[in-house]
């Protein structure tokens, strides 16, 4: 598929999402305010002699800022709609398109991520400036490679987690309560509330750590973690498990799917 086709598909879905431009802007503003609140909270804590294990104050502040921006890449996804589309049967329309399902999903998601990330750069810059944060400072080629791999790994892992939950819609109709609880669980164990290795290094090897913690840590501390190869290997292992679970659920789901109930 040509890059132009990818982009056009992704862009046209994005256009639909932002049909209500005002509410899109407001949701972005809300994110920005969230970021300020979290940041000021930690700033105050650090001023009062609270310190995180393994992290200098500057690194702690950086961690939360980067974790937010990484979230704009990894955690921003359109795939949450699939469940509703399955339940309502509207996904049938997509089945009729002469395009592979994964290509369609991927082009939605890439467009979505690119746009969200670009917007988040606008909030990022003032923070970097006021708090003298310098990402990519001592980066070498290996750190860059690790960073990019961990971003891809995180995005794919999170996408498959989301897809697994959404394909449950083939089997259940009441899934949103479970998903809500899972999202709280995930923000905790992916390191959006605190750097995981400041609490326990075991947490850092859970599949959820890849969704936010590893790339954020790398930016905050500007150094490769010890055993970086092992970390990536474990990550790809988890990814494989999620991938297989998803394909099994999806394939059987399609056979059970009854489309639009007329």
């Amino acid at each position: 598929m040509s890059w132009k086709r990818w982009w056009l598909i992704g862009y046209s879905f994005f256009k639909e999402e932002t049909a209500f431009q005002l509410s899109f802007l407001v949701s972005k503003l809300r994110e920005f305010i969230n970021l300020i609140v979290i940041f000021l909270l930690w700033y105050a804590l650090l001023k009062h002699n609270f310190h995180l294990k393994n992290y200098t104050n500057q690194q702690t502040l950086g961690y939360f800022l980067y974790s937010f921006v990484i979230g704009q890449i990894i955690l921003s996804t359109r795939l949450w709609r699939i469940g509703d589309m399955i339940i309502s049967g509207n996904i049938s329309a997509l089945f009729l398109y002469p395009i592979k399902m994964w290509q369609l999903f991927l082009s939605w998601d890439i467009a979505h991520k690119v746009i969200n990330f670009t917007i988040s750069l606008f909030y990022l810059l003032p923070f970097l400036f006021f708090f003298h944060l310098t990402p990519f400072q001592h980066f070498t080629l290996t750190t860059y490679i690790f960073f990019i791999l961990s971003l891809i790994l995180g995005s794919l892992t999170y996408s498959f987690i989301v897809l697994i939950f959404n394909s449950l819609a083939f089997y259940l109709t009441e899934m949103w309560s479970v998903i809500f609880l899972f999202n709280i669980f995930l923000s905790f164990f992916s390191g959006q509330f605190f750097p995981l290795d400041a609490v326990s290094s075991l947490l850092a090897f859970s599949p959820f750590a890849y969704v936010n913690f590893w790339p954020s840590r790398l930016l905050a501390r500007s150094e490769l973690p010890p055993h970086s190869i092992l970390i990536l290997a474990v990550g790809f292992f988890w990814l494989l498990i999620f991938f297989l679970t998803f394909t099994a659920l999806w394939r059987t789901g399609l056979k059970k799917f009854s489309g639009w109930g007329e």
Partner: peptide, 10 residues
């Protein structure tokens, strides 16, 4: 807009 998208997909 929907037609434009179909144009790309097909």
């Amino acid at each position: 807009d929907s037609f434009q998208m179909l144009k790309v997909i097909y």
